[in-house]
């Protein structure tokens, strides 16, 4: 556990705690609370051979793959839902065989994280038998239950080297305040060897205690304040997701050249403060306007 009282550091120093080849859990999911500032910084630092794990994700995983940072992808889903469709870089890498696809399942990942949290060598799941999923996972086994005689698939613990989490608020100790859905973040925090967190806003401990701590600081190794650190994902109650930017990304990422152009323009050309300038104050303000009225909120997605 991480007992220091002040874990604040720069984004570059925090991202440097992730090493080539690490098993990396990405927090949040789909379009919410993705640790995008850390993702962009890992791309800037040229990280390689990451083994990413998680539930249903989108631009975070796709961008890391498009930047050549990933060798194994063990997510339950990577894509942009019906709205923007398949994940371009993930799809290209999987079809060309440049990454190893170990597609998993939300329940299986949860179970494996629970095994790691509990310190036991395996846990059973009820499903999987009859599907082709075991073809992607030679580490799964079957076992006869000593009590019922049922044959169940059993899965080993999943202990990520590091979990990258984003929260709207946190303190210097690393206590994090989140809104639901927490997705797997609490389980990642318990099961991983360390947590690196970004927050839109650093506040006093009294404030996080007042709101209610979702993930306690003793799981967190480093914390960095990065305003709009989840952009273009949402980080409620602060800001909604930036559908226009997601669309820009998806269109660019459809070719290797477009992917390279996107990374050059939005990621490699500057740090996070320059990223926010490039996105523009007007666009960022727009994403916070969801609080004004239901119509204003709806307009963000029209």
């Amino acid at each position: 556990m991480f007992v220091d009282s002040d874990k604040r550091m720069s984004l570059a120093d925090a991202a440097a705690l992730v090493h080539d080849g690490d098993v990396v859990a990405l927090g949040g999911g789909l379009s919410a609370r993705l640790p995008m500032a850390l993702v962009r910084e890992l791309v800037r630092q040229g990280r390689r051979d990451l083994h990413v794990v998680g539930s249903a994700h989108s631009i975070d995983v796709d961008m890391l793959i498009g930047a050549g940072a990933v060798s194994v992808c063990e997510e339950s889903y990577v894509g942009f839902e019906q709205d923007l469709g398949l994940a371009p870089a993930y799809r290209r890498a999987a079809e060309e065989g440049t990454i190893r696809v170990k597609e998993s399942c939300c329940v299986t990942i949860l179970t494996q994280l629970r095994a790691a949290s509990m310190g036991v060598p395996f846990l059973p799941v009820r499903g999987i038998k009859g599907t082709d999923v075991p073809r992607l996972h030679s580490e799964y086994a079957e076992m006869t239950c000593p009590f019922t005689g049922d044959v169940l698939v059993v899965v080993p613990p999943l202990r990520p080297d590091v979990a990258l989490l984003h929260a709207p608020m946190g303190d210097a100790r690393g206590n994090l305040v989140m809104e639901q859905p927490y997705v797997l973040d609490e389980h990642f925090a318990q099961a991983s060897r360390s947590v690196i967190a970004t927050v839109d806003r650093l506040v006093d401990t009294d404030d996080v205690a007042g709101f209610g701590v979702t993930i306690p600081g003793h799981f967190v190794r480093a914390i960095v304040e990065v305003p709009f650190g989840a952009h273009p994902a949402s980080s409620y109650p602060g800001y909604a997701y930036d559908r226009r930017h997601m669309d820009t990304y998806v269109k660019a990422a459809r070719t290797p050249e477009g992917m390279g152009g996107y990374l050059q323009e939005w990621v490699l050309s500057g740090d996070e403060s320059e990223y926010r300038v490039r996105v523009g104050e007007e666009s960022l303000d727009r994403l916070t306007s969801w609080t004004e009225s239901d119509d204003a909120w709806k307009e963000l997605f029209a």
């Binding site: 339950s76 990577v78 079809e95 597609e103 399942c105």
Partner: peptide, 26 residues
């Protein structure tokens, strides 16, 4: 919802199954 074509070199890599491979059983 995983892949169309041979798994080693799919023609189309689909998004993935979410939680379906367990909860469709129960």
């Amino acid at each position: 919802v995983t892949a169309v074509g041979p798994l080693e070199k799919p023609k189309v890599k689909l998004g993935g199954g979410g939680g379906g491979c367990n909860i469709s059983a129960t």
